[in-house]
């Protein structure tokens, strides 16, 4: 089970609101390559992992992704906080306001709500880990896009941190895949 700690994994302190950037970043909350999808994917797949190391890594990365979800939610909230509806209208992000106000809702940047169709969980751990490698690369690519769309250091700093975590996750999943392949090789599974 889980216990909550009253802190983010890395500091999120954005001084200047930027509603357009909030909506752009929102896709990492509830979009196809976002942190919610990542967490649900790994925490569901962990039940099918065949070795202790791979159970641990899926469990622990799935848990870290929840912390990333919280960071992204905090960023969206801070970027939207107290911006007037008139301002939102001027910036053409008022359609989000019409549906959710300035709340944080799990959708992509186009307002498409989160769906579990973004993820897969199969009994085959090789299939799962290959999906996870792709997912981490897609998340990294998304952070690269987001980094190109802002020059606010308060926003760039946590985005860079999150991008680097995707690189580390990719590395660990590569190792997990190797562990599973070696174990299965020994057991003569094909």
């Amino acid at each position: 089970m889980w216990y909550y700690e009253k802190k983010t994994q890395y500091p999120v302190r954005i001084r200047k609101p930027d509603p357009r950037m909030a909506i752009n970043i929102l896709t990492q909350y509830g979009g196809p390559n976002g942190e919610l999808a990542a967490s649900l994917r790994y925490l569901s797949q962990r039940f099918s992992m065949p070795t202790k190391e791979t159970k641990a890594i899926l469990n622990d990365i799935g848990t870290e992704e929840l912390a990333h979800l919280e960071m992204i939610g905090s960023m969206v909230h801070q970027l939207m906080d107290k911006v007037s509806p008139q301002e939102l209208e001027k910036l053409h992000v008022d359609t989000m306001y019409a549906v959710h106000g300035r709340a944080v809702f799990p959708s992509d940047s186009n307002g498409v709500p989160f769906t579990a169709a973004y993820i897969e969980s199969m009994e085959d751990p090789i299939a799962n880990l290959n999906e996870d490698l792709a997912a981490e690369q897609k998340a990294r690519a998304t952070y690269e896009y987001l980094l190109k769309m802002t020059d606010d250091p308060d926003v760039i700093d946590p985005l860079r941190f999150l991008r680097e975590r995707e690189v580390v996750h990719y590395q660990r999943f590569g190792e997990a895949l190797r562990i599973v392949q070696e174990t299965m090789g020994k057991k003569k599974f094909y």
Binding site: M1, R46, F47, K52, K55, A56, N59
Partner: peptide, 9 residues
């Protein structure tokens, strides 16, 4: 030792 079985599931 964190990785050791059994996991809760």
């Amino acid at each position: 030792q964190w990785v050791n079985d059994p996991w809760p599931w």
